[in-house]
Design a protein around this nucleic acid. Structure first.
Lengths: 189, 189
DNA sequence: CACGTTTTAGAACGAATGCTCTATTATCCC
DNA sequence: GGGATAATAGAGCATTCGTTCTAAAACGTG
């Protein structure tokens, strides 16, 4: 019944991502998004309601893709250490394969993107739960587990992304080896 | 000869930091800084030249303070592993003792703060050099060293700061213990 | 006490921003 | 083909922003 869309969601969101990564968080104005995507301002408001709406959609798309790669089918699974190592390594793999989404999630903050105060905490529930279940299955303490499968991969990947470099495919193995060390040693801090 | 300042540099920079941490990177307008600090718009421009000038001064003050705590007098020193552990732990100690500066440095990006394209790379030269010298004195590979004394402490501290929590005094010991594990094992990734 | 210098003080300006509004165009169903 | 629906299209509005400008106030020095 309706008129067909000339500009797909992915077109608009990809254009928005391109602006953000090239010019910084403050640069994604509605006019800039319209210019880069080809969609007119009216269409953007018709579809997303507000500038924040576009950025929320972009963020949610990136989170959805990240979750698909980070959270294994079974946590903790038969070998919790191996599961943790795979989770840690998958962060680097994701950043290597999906640089644009990784940069958005790891180098930008929603507070700096949005005018409103929308929180994305709810999107992290799956990750928080998986890490907690993993920790319960391991003898090392919870803080150590979070360092191994969250903080260390995050920091290592972000160091490269923030400097504008792409993430080398070898980083996943190095992150995995480091996580293995942290998860295997029995002495919690 | 001149008129005395009614509003010190620290007053203006502290007010700017307060706005940034409460409202996000986009919120530190000159008008907001003037309102929060008491200094009129004209004084701010007289002293800092531009809005970017205020934020650059704020950033540089935070970096100066961080360097004083992070870079030891001697690198690598007689016991390189102990030096690396101390560096890693000092990140958490700094974040505990100096929450405001740590939040600025670890959760905000200069690109999102400034209108111009000023780079702060030069401010990191001291850190980069110290980490490289430490790595040269250790048998593990350089990427592993960077993970232990940069990425892991950064990720662990940022996880707390980004969630709005303060950094517990116990975190330094946990970070140090994890760094010790990573620096002691001979197998580079 | 007058002079030079620096800071304070805030009104005013052009540019940019998020958003609204009206009109037009395309598509599907009957 | 006629009508309902939804997307396109961009001019226009109120607001906010960074910055500039002019004027006055305070302080040390001669």
């Amino acid at each position: 019944m309706p008129r067909a869309r000339l500009h797909s969601d992915d077109t608009v969101l990809d254009a928005t991502a391109g602006i953000l990564l090239a010019e910084g968080a403050r640069s994604a104005s509605v006019k800039a998004i319209a210019g880069a995507s080809g969609a007119p301002v009216g269409s953007i408001y018709h579809r997303y309601g507000s500038r924040d709406g576009v950025l929320v959609a972009l963020w949610e798309r990136a989170v959805r893709r990240f979750h698909a790669s980070y959270i294994p089918a079974e946590v903790p699974g038969p070998d919790p250490v191996a599961t943790g190592v795979a989770m840690a390594a998958s962060v680097a793999e994701f950043a290597h394969a999906n640089a644009s989404d990784a940069q958005i999630l790891m180098t930008l903050r929603p507070e700096d993107l949005l005018d409103g105060k929308e929180s994305f905490e709810r999107l992290n529930a799956g990750i928080v739960g998986a890490v907690r279940r993993l920790g319960d299955a391991l003898p090392v303490d919870g803080e150590r587990v979070r360092m191994a499968v969250v903080d260390l991969p995050y920091g290592a990947v972000r160091r490269h992304l923030a400097a504008g470099r792409s993430v080398s495919p070898a980083l996943a193995a190095e992150v995995g080896a480091a996580a293995h060390l942290l998860l295997s040693d029995g002495e919690g801090a």
